[in-house]
C-alpha cells in the first residue's frame, strides 16, 4: 500500500481551524480538500476531521485538519482539538468586525495554550463579497451579484495585527477558491522542519484506504529543504 512513487519524505501535520461561527471555516476546508463549495453548509457540531496532502517540491505534508464549531459556547471544547496541533488557521469574516475580535481572542489563546511553536495563519474569508474579490477570484463565478463592497475590515488593519503577532496573513474566498490553496501551502512551508514527525505506520494508512481521502505513506529520509508547490 505504500506509495512507491513517492520518494519524497512525508510528514503529517495537525492543523486546527478556529474562528467565529459562520465565517467559513468548513467551507475553506471543503474547498481545500474537495475543491468544492456548498452554499448552505451545516454548522459543524463539535468538530469535523478531514485530511489532505500538500506536495512541496521536496516533501509531502499531510494535513490532518480539525475543523471546529464556531459558536461561542463550543469554545470550551476547542482545547480538545487544538491539543498537539502544529498549525492553526484562525478565520474571520472580512465583512464582520466582531469576527476579527474573536479571531484575536483565538490567537491569544493559541499563543498561550497550544503547543509552543504552533504556526498560526490569520485568514480573512469571504473576499468574494468585497470589490476586490470579484477581480481576484481565481474561480469562475465570483460574487458577481454583489456589486456593493461589504468589506468592513481593511487589509491594512488585519495585516498590521498579523505582523505584530507574527502570523501568516491571507485574504481568501472559499466560494471562488481564491487564495485558499496558498494558505495551506504557506503553512506547510512555515512548519519548522524539526517539528515534523513522520507519518504514522501502515496501520493508519490501512484504515485510511477505506475512505476517499488521499493518503500518502512514507518513511523515506527527510529532505531539509522546503520549497513552494502544493499540488492538491
Amino acid at each position: 500500500m505504500a506509495d512507491s512513487n513517492a520518494p519524497k519524505p512525508s510528514s503529517s501535520v495537525k492543523l486546527v481551524l478556529l474562528g467565529e461561527a459562520a465565517v467559513g471555516k468548513s467551507s475553506l476546508v471543503l474547498r481545500f480538500v474537495n475543491n468544492d463549495f456548498q452554499e448552505n453548509k451545516e454548522p459543524t457540531i463539535g468538530a469535523a476531521f478531514l485530511t489532505q496532502k500538500c506536495n512541496l517540491p521536496t516533501r509531502t505534508i499531510k494535513f490532518e485538519i480539525w475543523d471546529t464549531a464556531g459558536q461561542e459556547r463550543f469554545a470550551s471544547l476547542a482545547p480538545m482539538y487544538y491539543r498537539n496541533a502544529q498549525a492553526a488557521l484562525v478565520v474571520y469574516d472580512l465583512t464582520k468586525p466582531t469576527s476579527l475580535i474573536k479571531a484575536k481572542h483565538w490567537v491569544a489563546e493559541l499563543q498561550r495554550q497550544a503547543s509552543p511553536g504552533i504556526v498560526i495563519a490569520l485568514v480573512g474569508n469571504k473576499l468574494d463579497l468585497t470589490n476586490d474579490g470579484a477581480g481576484n477570484g481565481g474561480d469562475v463565478d465570483a460574487g458577481g451579484e454583489d456589486s456593493g463592497d461589504a468589506r468592513k475590515i481593511t487589509t491594512e488593519e488585519a495585516k498590521t495585527y498579523a505582523e505584530e503577532e507574527s502570523l501568516l496573513f491571507f485574504e481568501t474566498s472559499a466560494k471562488t477558491g481564491y487564495n485558499v490553496t496558498e494558505v495551506f501551502t504557506a503553512i506547510a512551508n512555515a512548519i519548522p522542519e524539526t517539528s515534523l514527525k513522520t507519518a504514522r505506520g501502515p496501520g493508519a494508512s490501512h484504515a485510511a484506504n477505506r475512505t476517499e481521502e488521499q493518503r500518502v505513506n512514507l518513511n523515506g529520509p527527510r529532505d531539509p529543504s522546503a520549497k513552494e508547490g502544493c499540488a492538491c
Binding site: 476531521f49 496501520g203 490501512h206 484504515a207 477505506r210 475512505t211 481521502e213
Partner: peptide, 18 residues
C-alpha cells in the same frame, strides 16, 4: 475489530463514518 486497527483520529473517524 476495525477500530483496533486504527491508530489515529483520522482512521478512527473513517471507520465509523463508513
Amino acid at each position: 475489530e476495525e477500530l483496533l486497527d486504527a491508530t489515529d483520529d483520522g482512521a478512527f473517524i473513517s471507520v465509523l463514518k463508513s
